[in-house]
Design a binder for these strands. Structure first.
Length: 285
DNA sequence: GCCCAGGTATAAA
DNA sequence: TTTATACATGGG
């Protein structure tokens, strides 16, 4: 199996769409999804990663992102400069339940801490799936991501080791709804339901608003037309695309969103210096 | 110590 | 309908 289009392993893992990965010395990355784990470098990725059917699909290697990027740049020329910051970024095909949980945990939180919570979630409630591939931790067991049924059986008290704060009850509500198909929430339907209906279904879950729902659809269900809007994207749209409707970006708007997000995060304060002075009660001028 | 984090629920205005 | 605040926790 070959890789279609460019592929940047580091940018794809580090752009905030998934949280079960570690950067290791020497350019290697450890990452996990469901009950599987991988250990690859960018060079190794090109040969080894593409040969494993699971990871091949996970990294969406059959889709030619170069063609899509060209299409997006034709629709919106500003994306030429932005996508150049990470042309090899891809949208992962994560497992929907796992993605839903991760984005529930991501709200008002930072990536290092999200990774810690997700790690503890797997360790406390996942099944053992073998020996860790992480060097120096070889004797430690590797755990799969816990099922909705498993979490639905947990009390708030039992989730306290996660130290996930106010998000713990959101996790339990999501688990109960998914495990029991409460109010007709069947995750597998969300691959094909119209986006507006799929979003509405997810937003019935406590703690799931528009942003978490859209991230779940884009990153968990691979609904590439979904364009999640967060504080960075809102700011970027106001600055670079005033009046622009993200739907104009077409069926791959979600990929454009990742280019924009990655570009803004890379430039950070340089783009939005006023954000640095946004202290409470402090006058901007 | 202090600010803030790829938001959301809830209570006012 | 729009705007403000609390939320738990800990990384930087």
């Amino acid at each position: 199996m070959s890789i279609q289009g460019s592929f940047d392993l580091a940018a794809t893992l580090e752009c905030g769409q998934c949280f079960r990965w570690e950067a290791l010395p020497g350019g290697q990355y450890w990452f996990a999804a469901e009950g599987k784990q991988g250990l690859f470098s960018q060079d190794g990725a090109l040969s080894l990663l593409s040969e494993d059917p699971y990871w091949h699909r996970y990294f969406d290697l059959d889709r030619d992102y170069d063609i899509i990027r060209r299409e997006l740049c034709e629709r919106e020329p500003l994306l030429k400069e932005m996508s150049a910051y990470a042309p090899g970024i891809r949208i992962l095909q994560q497992e929907p339940w796992e993605a839903l949980c991760c984005f529930i945990l991501s709200q008002n939180n930072n990536i290092p801490r999200i990774k810690g919570i997700v790690h503890r979630l797997c360790k406390e409630f996942g099944e053992t799936k073998g020996i860790s591939l992480l060097p120096e931790k070889e004797e430690i067991s590797f755990y799969s991501f816990p099922s909705a049924k498993r979490l639905a059986a947990c009390s708030l008290e039992e989730l306290s080791p996660l130290r996930s704060g106010f998000r713990a009850r959101y996790l339990i509500d999501a688990a109960e709804r998914v495990a029991s198909k409460k109010e007709g929430l069947v995750l597998s339907d969300l691959y094909t339901l119209p986006v507006s209906e799929a979003r509405e279904a997810l937003m019935k879950i406590l703690g799931v608003g528009r942003k978490v729902a859209d991230c779940t659809l884009l990153f968990g269900f691979h609904r590439l037309e979904v364009f999640p809007v967060d504080v960075w994207i809102r700011r970027a749209m106001e600055t670079f695309f005033p009046g622009k409707d993200p739907e104009d970006l077409g069926p791959y708007a979600g990929i454009a969103q990742q280019y924009i997000f990655h570009y803004c995060r890379s430039k950070g304060q340089e783009l939005f210096p006023e954000k640095a002075r946004q202290k409470k009660g402090e006058h901007p001028c």
